[in-house]
């Protein structure tokens, strides 16, 4: 029983960290730009596919794919923000959401055209394939790796936002755009930069997902974006700390749910999301309105 609990916990942690990687970019973008980006799941998918594509051409080197693939997605993120999203910030919510949704449609099909509608198998990661024995049961090594990567990314983001000049500018702009502009921050350029950074995080999540989820499908972004929304909402829209712990909660809930309450696993997730929105809309870690 104990072994089983430990394994369910570990599985939950790895699921959580995996969602966190995707939700972090979404949250960063929402925190600064106040735009809920449906296309974030698409960046994740593109990250996965491009990582796969690059490593296929670079001697099956996963790390090289992970380094280059997401950077290519950043270019797409840059173009989207600079030439489209920028022009709808002043518009009502439906226009912003549907603009990002248009890119979901476009890239979903683009991926089908480029890589086919079927699913692709995933490569092995040297040194991280296989599993190790924990309390007498095997646990995938790559999942352990994910559990380690999640907090590292969180730490890196925290350091960047709290300890660097750039981070201070971003935080200032997210809390008061007019004030930041008055103090000489070039807000449009900053928005582009943040959007590209968020894109990169989403694509990185996708790249890291390649060995984790096992196969790549053109619709993979649509599934993850809802998980990322749930996590972002539970943590408080715009709160990175919230997204981190929100992801842990959802990861554990989903892994325990699958194990003990398989019928209501998905239901539990959404009831938690609704409950947070109703009784604590600022999320577990967001500031009160």
């Amino acid at each position: 029983m104990l072994e089983s609990i430990v394994h369910v916990c570990l599985a939950g942690l790895s699921i959580g960290m995996f969602i966190w990687l995707v939700a972090s970019g979404l949250t960063l973008i929402f925190g600064v730009l106040k735009v809920l980006n449906f296309a974030h799941g698409t960046f994740y998918m593109l990250g996965a596919y491009l990582c796969y594509w690059v490593l296929g051409r670079m001697g099956e080197n996963f790390w090289l794919g992970l380094a280059i693939g997401p950077l290519v997605v950043c270019a797409a993120g840059f173009l989207i923000e600079r030439f489209f999203l920028r022009h709808v910030y002043h518009l009502a919510l439906p226009y912003q959401l549907l603009l990002t949704f248009a890119f979901v449609l476009i890239f979903d099909d683009a991926v089908k055209i480029l890589w086919g509608a079927g699913s692709l198998g995933s490569p092995n990661v040297p040194g991280l394939s296989g599993s190790i024995s924990i309390l007498g049961r095997n646990f995938p090594l790559y999942s352990l790796f994910m559990i380690a990567v999640g907090p590292l990314v969180a730490l890196a983001m925290w350091t960047f936002l709290e300890r660097t000049w750039w981070g201070r500018i971003i935080r200032a702009s997210s809390s008061d755009r007019e004030m930041a502009a008055a103090l000489g921050v070039r807000v449009p350029a900053l928005y582009t930069a943040v959007f590209v950074l968020g894109t990169w995080l989403g694509a990185l999540g996708g790249g890291l997902a390649v060995p984790y989820v096992g196969l790549l499908t053109p619709g993979m972004g649509e599934a993850i974006i809802i998980d990322a929304f749930v996590v972002a909402v539970i943590g408080g829209l715009g709160s990175l700390k919230g997204a981190f712990f929100g992801a842990l909660i959802i990861g554990l809930l989903s892994s325990f749910g699958t194990r003990f309450l398989p019928t209501f696993d998905m239901f539990l997730t959404f009831i938690l999301m609704a409950a947070v929105l109703l009784w604590r809309p600022q999320g577990f870690f967001g500031e009160a309105k």
Partner: peptide
């Protein structure tokens, strides 16, 4: 073509950007 979503997405883009 199999890719109606692509075209539909482009139409959506055009409407949001220019013909709200």
């Amino acid at each position: 073509t199999q890719n109606w979503m692509l075209w539909f997405g482009i139409i959506l883009l055009i409407i949001i950007m220019g013909f709200r």
